[in-house]
Design a protein around this nucleic acid. Structure first.
Lengths: 350, 350
DNA sequence: ACAGGCGGGACAATTCATGTCCCTGGTGTG
DNA sequence: CACACCAGGGACATGAATTGTCCCGCCTGT
């Protein structure tokens, strides 16, 4: 046991609710940080606290010089930011997130696992946090003149909309991993690639074709020189950042026809990632030709980063991890708990 | 810095109220341990707590299995003893500062001593903390329609620039304690008085005269009606907030002539405060007429607050404390350690 | 055997925490 | 430049928790 665990255990004997209060205040401070500027009532709602209780806490944080409160709302101070940064690793140890990380990392042979507090299913702000953590990871692995392929989805959108860099990434390229998927424009891979490039001063290319194609259309399009050109860039990506979805949810969202959905069901499709469907063991179900990144391209990619959270996605995430091509997983507490629950099951049966 | 130290610092920022409770419970447990077996009322008396409050705590410690309570009194349990042993180093780190405070407070008969962590000499942000603590003290002692006289200096500037109030102090006055001292404008008493007044919605008056004057100039100026008026306000101050400086450093900064510096040296001047020089025993050296606050005015002031930090100022602070007119001292760990080192010397010689 | 001091019960007084609503004012938007 | 909206802060009733004070019956050390 770490020195910190014993330290906290000692204190908890004398102050049993120490961790409760510490967590509460930390989460408030963190939420304010994530929100840039936020009002009391909005904050209370997003943290599921009553207004008055939150107010007592923010008043306290103000007197501690960690929050700035002004007419337009509250904002974190420099000291508050410093405190948050210092506290992050401690928080993870205290609340067992680093244990979850390590356990998942080992089981699936990943390079790195990051678990952020919360559950995207129930707490909307958790997705922001997921996005922020995703940004940090992406920055860590990106190198000069890299090509980064990204998929779409709401979680990836959180990454795109929060991505920043200290210096413009002039030589880097952001490209969509796949074509259009019939979802809302805001979450299209094309949109996100362009957003990320604009926010970081990098270049981007777009892929203006639908993702799922018949054989004939595929052949025709691949003969177009400008399509070929961008496809070549995409398939040379060194980094892939992708979300993970539930197979049925994704299939419906893509408005594929009923018979296809039935086929997926019959084949036991559980999860979806970078346009492919996987069963619960991580085996690919239903390959089909695509203009974008193919499985064989992904196998050749150096860094594959998965970003997905929410307890409802635990199974899907586990399935993709079993597929085994990912290097980094960024998820949240809700999903991570679901995943380790599955690990417990596995071990019990063994 | 150790992980323990950083955890403690975070807790001090985030849970200062809980740490007070922690200390209380620790001290109760320790007292029980030292007493072998002790009754509730006796214990309450020796810890200067009321019976009922102590009882709430001992009930709690009992449920935590740290105390054994029987008909003959209470006794520490094995678990309690273990906790106490493990907690000792932790306690020292957590509350080392409060012990310093209490020691200094008692020795110099002060109302209150505040020691902030750090050393202004080496850690620049410590001065900010000093200023913030100074603000809290000032707010605590200020009352309706008070006149507050302040001196200049970089430390006091930190107070001025961070001072806030919940409601505007319409009836209060901030005034400079002394006239111009030939330092940078930013640290002039005049500047600080006006800053503080503006930040708190209070009134202020300025003293537009040099501090050190010849007899003749003094007499002439004091006959000016507008000078007389403001001087009367200044001399009626109920609160004085002042910094403390090293005598030689201050003398040089004020560009007094060489012969004066030699005279100061010969008289053993060590410290400077509110325009006067003191030797290491706190005796005043070299009085001279001033338009601003005179020593006799300070003797009549109700609340005198000293704010100064940095290990290099320990001796100067101690000298001013020996002078004995201060009620409150706000300092930092660096200076406080130097001061108690001197106390240790004193005790060794006695 | 007994007296003093023990823990624990009781309870009124008071403080404190909390949920809720309102008000004024600043900010961003059109 | 005007407006609408949402911000923080004030106010307050209510209910919970804390606290000071007293008492009682019992154990225990002498």
């Amino acid at each position: 046991m770490g020195i910190m665990q014993s330290l906290i255990e000692i204190q908890q004997k004398l102050l049993p609710d120490l961790l409760v209060v510490l967590k509460k205040r930390y989460l408030i401070l963190r939420q304010v940080m994530l929100s840039d500027m936020i009002g009391r009532r909005t904050l209370a709602a997003s943290l599921e606290m009553t207004e008055r209780v939150l107010r007592a806490e923010t008043d306290f944080l103000k007197t501690q010089g960690l929050l700035h409160i002004e007419a337009a709302g509250m904002r974190i101070t420099e000291a508050g930011q410093r405190l948050l940064d210092e506290m992050e690793p401690l928080y993870k140890q205290m609340f067992g997130l680093s244990d979850l990380e390590e356990r998942i990392r080992k089981r699936y042979g990943l390079k790195q696992v990051i678990v952020v507090p919360g559950d995207s299913d129930s707490l909307p702000h958790t997705k922001r946090e997921l996005g922020l953590a995703g940004c940090a990871v992406l920055r860590k692995y990106m190198e000069k003149d890299d090509v980064v392929a990204i998929t779409g989805g709401t979680t990836l959108a959180q990454v795109a909309n929060q991505l920043t860099t200290q210096t413009p990434l002039k030589g880097n390229w952001f490209v969509p991993a796949r074509g259009g998927l019939g979802e809302s424009l805001d979450y299209q891979a094309n949109t996100l690639a362009s957003t990320m490039a604009k926010r970081t001063g990098a270049q981007y290319r777009l892929l203006h074709v639908p993702d799922h194609l018949g054989e004939e259309a595929y052949t025709t399009l691949m003969q177009e020189p400008n399509v070929r050109e961008i496809v070549e860039v995409i398939r040379s990506a060194r980094i892939v950042v992708h979300g993970i979805g539930d197979a049925m949810v994704m299939a419906r969202r893509r408005r594929v026809d009923g018979s296809f959905i039935e086929a997926l069901k019959a084949e036991g499709a559980h999860a979806e990632a970078f346009g492919y469907y996987f069963d619960r063991n991580g085996a690919v179900v239903h390959r089909m030709p695509t203009i974008g990144l193919r499985l064989e391209d992904i196998m050749a990619t150096e860094v594959v980063i998965a970003i997905a959270g929410g307890s409802s996605k635990a199974e899907a995430i586990a399935a993709i991890m079993r597929f085994g091509r990912d290097d980094v997983l960024v998820t949240d507490e809700g999903a991570a708990l679901g995943i380790v629950a599955q690990l417990d099951e596995e071990e019990k049966q063994a």
